[in-house]
Nucleic acid binder design. Structure first.
Length: 111
DNA sequence: GCAATGACTGGTA
DNA sequence: TTACCAGCCATTG
C-alpha cells in the first residue's frame, strides 16, 4: 500500500491523529460523519479529540465531511463547508447537512 | 507529572 | 426553536 507514504507528508502525528485523518480521508463524497461517530468508529478518544486533530492537521483531509451531531459546524468553517457540500452533492437542509440522508453508513458500497 | 485547552454531546430551561 | 451546563478525553505547555 502506498498510503503509508502519506503519513510522511506531515509531521510525526500521534496514533490517534493518524487514525482520525485516515478515517476522514476514507469518507466518500456526498457523505458525512459526526465527530462522535468518528470517535466511536475508532473505539477511543471522544468527539473533542477528533475536532482537535482536524483543527491541527485537518488541512490535509476532507474535514467538511465531518460535522456536528446537529449537522452544523463552527461559523468559521460553515461557509467553506457549504461550498464543498454543494459541489459534492451532499444532502443539505436549511444551511445544515441533512444527517438522516447524508450520514455515512461506514460502507463505501452503500448507495 | 499536573493543569489547561478544545472544529463535541446530550440534557435541561 | 435557541441558550446554558456539566461531562468527556487526547494533546500540549
Amino acid at each position: 500500500m502506498s498510503n503509508n507514504d502519506d503519513l510522511k507528508l506531515t509531521r510525526a502525528r500521534t496514533s490517534f491523529a493518524e487514525a482520525v485523518l485516515d478515517l476522514v480521508a476514507r469518507i466518500p463524497a456526498s457523505r458525512v460523519l459526526t465527530y462522535g461517530d468518528v470517535a466511536e468508529y475508532l473505539g477511543t478518544g471522544g468527539p473533542r479529540q477528533v475536532g482537535t486533530v482536524l483543527a491541527t492537521e485537518g488541512g490535509s483531509v476532507p474535514w467538511w465531511r465531518v460535522v456536528r451531531s446537529d449537522g452544523t459546524i463552527p461559523a468559521r468553517l460553515r461557509a467553506q463547508a457549504m461550498s464543498h457540500w454543494q459541489v459534492e452533492g451532499t444532502a443539505i437542509r436549511d444551511a445544515r447537512v441533512d444527517m438522516p440522508k447524508a450520514k455515512w453508513s461506514g460502507d463505501v458500497g452503500a448507495l
